[in-house]
């Protein structure tokens, strides 16, 4: 099966000057000056496509982009890790306690930093995370055109289908969702409300969105999804509600309430196949009640954003879309070389 990597498309936007590149900003802000210089030189022209930077104490730094892994020599020592952590928490650990406890924090610009270290438990629950030894800096960016090929399954002239993006971590779900929201907002004119629990979709910082979600979007930042969805339906009267990474029973209940209220929903879930959903007690109801009309499965098999399959609810079941049913577009700005989307 040929797959398309929509996030690696050639076309998306002119290369931005290196000083404006989000990855460069993150590197300059978090790493010691000599290290930042070294990383910039090694990542070079891949800097703009950088998807994540992995920093582990006692190991070399690794950058990942477009299925490539770039090594930055010289291992990370304790002092360097401490410097990075101080830059991350702005020398204010007390202000990030909750984020440390959850194992991640979000930087200005929507970049998410995952943390591992020693967990401190209290009555079986994680109370704190100390002695951080590993960081995964996931870089957020707009990939314009990333949703072009899947938009026909999500929206047509008159309606928007309730859509679920399914994929494992780092498969491009959030980036594709961001582009779906922007397209529906800017190009189709829908009023959209977004619950951005982890500040990854919009990258809100001091009340301003650092990532482009379009001009008809209201963003509820840092709010738990279930509470946020209920709040937005009442307060903002959205036509479409979007949120990232549904996971628990409360999220599903709020989703059902939104659908019952006539709001269209677009969201994401971790998983690799419909089978994965069926096997998870909380999420199985998504399929049983066929809450979504379109399910798109993403992977990173050919880089983040590879489309594995598209399913649509029809004839009382989820049917996998055949390649020849894919609507053709006049301009095919996202396609990579001569490869074509072959879903079956």
């Amino acid at each position: 099966m040929a797959k398309i990597n929509i996030l690696n498309s050639q076309s998306l936007k002119p290369l931005m000057p290196i000083k404006e590149c989000p990855a460069k900003k993150v590197i300059d802000n978090l790493f010691m000056p000599e290290r930042a210089k070294q990383m910039t030189e090694i990542f070079a022209e891949e800097l703009e496509h950088l998807e994540e930077i992995r920093v582990r104490r006692g190991q070399v730094i690794l950058g990942r982009c477009r299925l490539k892994e770039l090594k930055v020599p010289q291992i990370v020592l304790k002092e360097e890790m401490e410097y990075i952590l101080q830059r991350l928490n702005q020398s204010s650990l007390y202000a990030w306690e909750e984020e440390y406890r959850k194992g991640y924090l979000t930087l200005a610009g929507g970049h998410r930093v995952g943390l591992t270290g020693k967990t401190m438990l209290q009555r079986g629950e994680i109370r704190a995370l100390k002695d951080i030894n590993s960081l995964n800096i996931r870089l957020a960016r707009n990939v314009y055109g990333a949703a072009d090929k899947i938009m026909p399954y999500i929206a047509n002239k008159n309606t928007v289908r309730n859509t679920l993006l399914l994929g494992p971590p780092a498969s491009g779900k959030t980036t594709v969702l961001r582009e779906i929201i922007r397209t529906l907002s800017d190009e189709k004119g829908y009023q959209i409300s977004v619950v951005d629990e982890r500040s990854e979709l919009a990258g809100m910082y001091e009340g301003e969105s650092n990532l482009n979600l379009g001009s008809r979007v209201d963003i509820l930042d840092g709010c738990p999804k279930a509470a946020g969805m209920n709040m937005l339906i009442r307060s903002m009267a959205p036509e479409i509600l979007a949120t990232d990474e549904l996971g628990n029973k409360e999220d599903i209940q709020a989703l059902e309430e939104a659908l019952a209220a006539g709001v269209r929903v677009i969201t994401t879930v971790h998983g690799q196949s419909l089978e994965d959903l069926r096997n998870r007690p909380v999420l199985a109801s998504l399929l049983e009640k066929h809450l979504f009309e379109t399910i798109i499965i993403l992977s990173k098999s050919q880089g983040a954003g590879s489309i594995e399959a598209v399913y649509q609810w029809q004839n009382d079941g989820y049917e996998r879309v055949r390649a020849n049913e894919i609507p053709r577009r006049g301009t095919d700005s996202w396609s990579v070389g001569s490869r074509r989307l072959d879903l079956c």
Binding site: N89, S91, L93, Y94
Partner: peptide, 10 residues
């Protein structure tokens, strides 16, 4: 201890 401890320690 400035900035490097949790809220209660701070």
């Amino acid at each position: 201890s400035l900035g490097s401890s949790d809220l209660s320690q701070q």
